[in-house]
């Protein structure tokens, strides 16, 4: 009975004698779930480091992180949504829309106005999705599938089907390197840190997990389900907008077809990181691991001169493998209910 000894990591005072059995040992919360993925990551890194002389160095790692920054920023509120059994498919369209809005407004009224209007647009998109899902009560999948198409259309109309060039100096957002670290990576780190704290240490995060696992129970204990989900959608809109601005800055142009299919990369990373589409499971840490695996895979395959079409095949196969493996793991674990 190792449980009888009180856990040194437990923050509370040592239990009194009569409650000695009630230890606060966390039975290894999410680590075992992530262990398999981390092994995959280490194997991938080892393989690419062995096969390519350009892979294992700091500059290349910064490349990988820059490449996953856009996906990662969106994947943070994406994780919150998936944990609460919601999903936002409109993020790719939202990113493109905000980029085009920025470029068009900046052309006529200056850069500051462009950024402001673009951010307001992102906010409005999040509010619209949140309103449709929580007030009108349209299923999130259908709502955001609809807004995905609507936004892409509006983006094309706004840009008149053309790529809008961004003349004036907005390149810094996507390319500046304070302290040698690309700004998008720093932004990603900030978003990740904030999301980690929110998911793990606040009532908001706890509520997301509760809603995803048992929405009726969450309501009964007094959680305002709709307000929590609404907030997550607003965050998703804002994150998509920020990602769109970074993309636009990196290219110095806003393409109306930018970020097509980005929503699928985002969901792939989140699910790879252990989230369940039915809600209740998933974590910021897991999503990060999922993102890095995809980033390393893409980067390594490019360095090895593998045809880029193989990247899609590799990523898709990895996703299916990871989820299949997770299903097996759950079935083999005796004390976990369906």
């Amino acid at each position: 009975m190792t449980q009888l000894t009180s856990d040194p990591q437990a923050a509370g005072p040592p239990p009194v004698e009569t409650t000695a059995v009630l230890t606060a040992t966390r039975p290894g919360r999410s680590l075992p779930e992530l262990a398999g993925l981390l092994v995959v990551l280490v194997v991938l890194i080892g393989f690419f480091a062995w096969r390519s002389p350009y892979f294992f160095n700091v500059d290349n790692f910064l490349n990988i992180l820059t490449a996953i920054a856009v996906t990662g920023i969106i994947a943070m509120p994406g994780t919150m949504l998936l944990v609460s059994a919601q999903v936002d498919l409109s993020v790719g369209s939202a990113a493109a829309f905000c980029g085009v809005v920025l470029a068009v407004v900046a052309e006529s009224s200056g850069l500051a106005a462009g950024v402001l209007v673009a951010l307001l647009a992102g906010l409005a998109l999040g509010v619209a999705n949140g309103f449709l899902v929580t007030v009108v009560k349209v299923n999130a999948l259908i709502t955001t599938l609809g807004t995905l198409a609507v936004l892409r259309g509006f983006t094309q109309l706004t840009a008149d089907g053309q790529t809008v060039l961004l003349g004036i100096g907005f390149g810094w957002l996507g390319t500046a390197r304070p302290l040698g670290i690309p700004l998008p990576v720093i932004l990603l780190a900030v978003v990740v840190a904030a999301s980690f704290v929110a998911m793990r240490y606040t009532v908001f995060g706890r509520s997301l997990y509760a809603i995803g696992a048992n929405a009726a129970a969450a309501r009964l204990v007094g959680i305002r389900n709709r307000a929590v989900i609404f907030a997550a959608f607003v965050l998703s809109g804002l994150a998509a907008c920020l990602a769109g601005l970074i993309l636009t800055s990196q290219l110095s142009a806003a393409s109306p077809i930018a970020a097509s299919g980005l929503e699928l990369s985002v969901i792939t990373a989140i699910v790879l990181g252990g989230a369940s589409l039915s809600g209740g499971r998933g974590s910021v840490g897991g999503t990060i691991v999922g993102l890095v695996i995809i980033g390393v895979l893409n980067n390594g395959l490019i360095l090895l001169n593998v045809n880029t079409f193989w990247q899609d095949i590799a990523r898709g196969s990895l996703l299916i493998l990871a989820v299949s493996f997770d299903q097996l793991r759950q079935r083999l674990q005796p004390n976990t209910r369906g």
């Binding site: 606060a24 997990y209 696992a213």
Partner: peptide, 30 residues
């Protein structure tokens, strides 16, 4: 009305979590 994915302490305080400066006060809840 329990949430399977949360532990006992989480469930006991669900909806009425004890917080300190907006951060969950796990020590007090435990």
């Amino acid at each position: 009305a329990l949430c399977d994915n949360l532990d006992i302490v989480d469930n006991l305080f669900l909806g009425r979590e004890v917080t300190k400066n907006g951060i969950l006060d796990e020590a007090t809840m435990e």
